[in-house]
């Protein structure tokens, strides 16, 4: 009887393991790229751009943080290369004020804590009331917790003559976002993802003269 029970338990475990093969995810495979275009903007109307000279960071108090990240220059350089390759002209120094659009790069990377409930049947346990430290009975502890530093780079194209309407809102002409698990070597991934943003945005090109 004990042996039969062990066989049943072993079989159930085998099925549970078999339900999600290849479930470990590499940092590179966690990358996603999102791009957005403002529908009423004709990108061929613009020929010049001004690229901000440093990556913007915002701290927990929603203040600008001036610390420089290890990949800031790489990101800015790759963004510039892609815009130049499309035919846009970068304006620098005093001329920057005359640029058609401004390109801002923001880094909103942060440490994220993700919790997973993999119980079978897990739908019984996934109650939204679970809060670590203040959970009440019945408590459903997560079966796994992933603490992952998340890379989150946002590139915005904003008109040079922008007006803020409504308050605290800017009209963004184009936005590219890349998200993924932060890794010790982000170089290749950042280059690939920034390139992917432009690949996904074939409309980003000035009118040919």
């Amino acid at each position: 009887m004990v042996m039969f029970r062990n066989i049943i338990i072993g079989f159930i475990l085998l099925i549970l393991v078999g339900c999600y093969p290849d479930s470990s995810i590499s940092p590179a495979e966690s990358d996603t790229v999102y791009t957005y275009r403002c529908p009423d903007v004709d990108f061929t109307d613009y020929k010049t751009y001004h690229l901000i000279d440093s990556v913007l960071r915002i701290d927990d108090y929603i203040d600008l943080n001036n610390t420089e990240g290890p990949y800031d220059q790489l990101i800015l350089q790759r963004v510039e290369e892609n815009f130049n390759a499309r035919g846009y002209v970068k304006l620098i120094g005093d001329n920057a004020e005359n640029a058609s659009v401004n390109i801002y790069v923001r880094d909103l990377s942060a440490i994220n804590i993700m919790q997973y409930w993999n119980y079978i049947p897990y739908w019984i346990y996934t109650n939204d009331a679970y809060v670590q430290g203040t959970a009440y009975f019945p408590v459903s502890l997560p079966s796994s917790t992933l603490i992952a530093p998340e890379s989150n780079i946002i590139i915005d194209m904003i008109p040079n003559d922008f007006v803020i309407i409504p308050e605290d809102t800017l009209k963004v002409y184009w936005r590219g976002v890349t998200k993924g698990i932060y890794d010790i070597n982000m170089q290749d991934r950042l280059i690939r993802n920034i390139d992917q943003m432009f690949f996904q945005s074939p409309y980003l090109k000035p009118a040919e003269e």
Partner: peptide, 12 residues
């Protein structure tokens, strides 16, 4: 319509 999203997707 105005946005594109890409990434590695696993379907179970």
């Amino acid at each position: 319509e105005n946005s594109v999203f890409s990434g590695w997707q696993r379907n179970y």
